[in-house]
C-alpha cells in the first residue's frame, strides 16, 4: 500500500498518540543516562592513562640536607633510564605551600622533616617496567619510597567504572521499558481496530501487511517523540558540559564528551526506533496468529 493511505487506515488510533510523549520522556532519560555513562567512561580512561605511567618518589627520613642529596642521586639515576620520559623534583617551596594548611607556620621551619619528592613519567605503564624503575630508584637511595598514583587514585577509577555500568544498565532498562510500552500500545491498537483488521484480512492482507500498518504508525510516533526527547537531553548535556569545562578541573575535564560520544547519543533514537519496530511487529503478528 502507498505510505499515506496506509497510515490513514488506522487514522483514529488515539491510543497511539500517547507514544509521542512516552518516547520523548524515554529518550530524554536514555540520552542523559548514556551521556553520563560515556562521560564517566571517558573520564575513567583519561584517569587510567594519566595515572598508569606516573610515579612519585619520596625520600623520607634524615634531615633536609640528606634527603636533598638522596633526591639528587635518584634524579640523576632516573634521567639516565630510557623508560623514563620525565623526572622533576617537586620544589620544596611547593611542598611547604601544600602542607601549610595542615601544619601552619611550622611547615616553614627548616627543622620539620618535609620529604623531598620527585614526579616521574614513564613511557610504558606496565607493572614490569614500573617494578624495574622502582628497583633502580631504591638501589640509588635507601631513603626512596616509590608510589604508583594508580594505587591511591584507584577508588576514583572504581567510582567512574561503577557509574559507567550503572548508566549502561539504565539504558538497557529504558530500552526494555520502551519495548513494553510499544507492546501495550500495539495491543490496545489491535483491540481498537479489530473490525478494520478483519476487513483487511478478508481483502487478502497478510499478517505482515497488517503488522506493517501498526509498525509504521507506532514507529512514526516513536520517532517524533524520540527526536524531541533526544534533542532536549543533548541540549542539557551540552549545558552541563559547558559548566564542567568552566570549572577547569583536570579530573572533571575528562568527563567531557568527544565527537564520537555525541554521535553515539544521536544514534540512540534510531536504536530505539528499531526496538519499537521489532516490538510492534512481534506483538501484532503474534496476536494475529489466533485469527482465522
Amino acid at each position: 500500500m502507498s505510505e499515506n493511505r496506509t497510515a490513514r487506515v488506522l487514522d483514529e488510533a488515539r491510543g497511539l498518540r500517547a507514544m509521542v510523549w512516552v518516547m520523548a520522556i524515554m529518550l530524554f532519560l536514555t540520552v542523559l543516562a548514556a551521556a553520563l555513562g560515556l562521560g564517566t567512561a571517558s573520564a575513567g580512561r583519561l584517569l587510567d592513562r594519566q595515572l598508569a605511567g606516573r610515579l612519585t618518589v619520596q625520600l623520607v627520613g634524615g634531615d633536609a640536607r640528606a634527603s636533598d642529596a638522596a633526591a639528587g642521586a635518584v634524579l640523576a639515576r632516573l634521567r639516565r633510564m630510557p623508560q623514563v620520559t620525565r623526572a622533576v623534583a617537586v620544589p620544596r617551596a611547593d611542598l611547604v605551600r601544600l602542607l601549610r594548611p595542615w601544619l601552619g607556620e611550622a611547615a616553614e621551619d627548616g627543622e620539620l622533616p618535609v620529604p623531598a619528592m620527585i614526579d616521574v613519567d614513564l613511557r610504558d605503564a606496565d607493572d614490569a617496567s614500573v617494578a624495574r624503575v622502582a628497583g633502580q630508584v631504591r638501589a640509588a637511595s635507601p631513603l626512596a619510597r616509590v608510589d604508583r598514583h594508580q594505587s591511591w587514585m584507584s577508588p576514583v577509577s572504581g567510582l567512574m567504572r561503577t557509574l559507567t555500568w550503572l548508566a549502561a544498565a539504565l539504558v538497557a532498562l529504558l530500552a526494555l521499558a520502551t519495548a513494553i510500552v510499544v507492546v501495550l500500545t500495539a495491543r490496545a491498537g489491535l483491540e481498537a481496530h479489530r473490525g478494520t483488521i478483519e476487513v483487511m484480512h478478508m481483502l487478502g492482507s497478510t499478517d505482515v501487511q497488517v503488522a506493517r500498518l501498526f509498525q509504521r504508525r507506532i514507529v512514526r510516533d516513536a520517532a517524533m517523540g524520540g527526536l524531541v526527547g533526544t534533542a532536549a537531553a543533548m541540549g542539557m548535556t551540552a549545558l552541563v558540559g559547558g559548566q564542567v569545562s568552566r570549572l577547569g578541573s583536570e579530573l572533571l575535564g575528562g568527563i567531557l564528551l568527544a565527537p564520537l560520544d555525541w554521535a553515539l547519543l544521536a544514534a540512540l533514537p534510531f536504536l530505539f526506533m528499531g526496538v519499537a519496530t521489532l516490538a510492534a511487529r512481534w506483538t501484532v503478528t503474534r496476536a494475529l496468529r489466533h485469527n482465522l
Binding site: 490513514r8 483514529e12 473490525g195 478478508m202 481483502l203 487478502g204
Partner: peptide, 24 residues
C-alpha cells in the same frame, strides 16, 4: 465479498476503500 453490513473502513474515503484490495 460484499458484506451484509458493508464493513467499509470508516477513516477512508469511498475512493480509498474501493482501492484497498488493489493496494493489498
Amino acid at each position: 465479498v460484499v458484506f451484509q453490513d458493508f464493513r467499509l473502513v470508516p477513516h477512508l474515503s469511498a475512493w480509498d476503500n474501493i482501492a484497498l484490495p488493489l493496494h493489498v
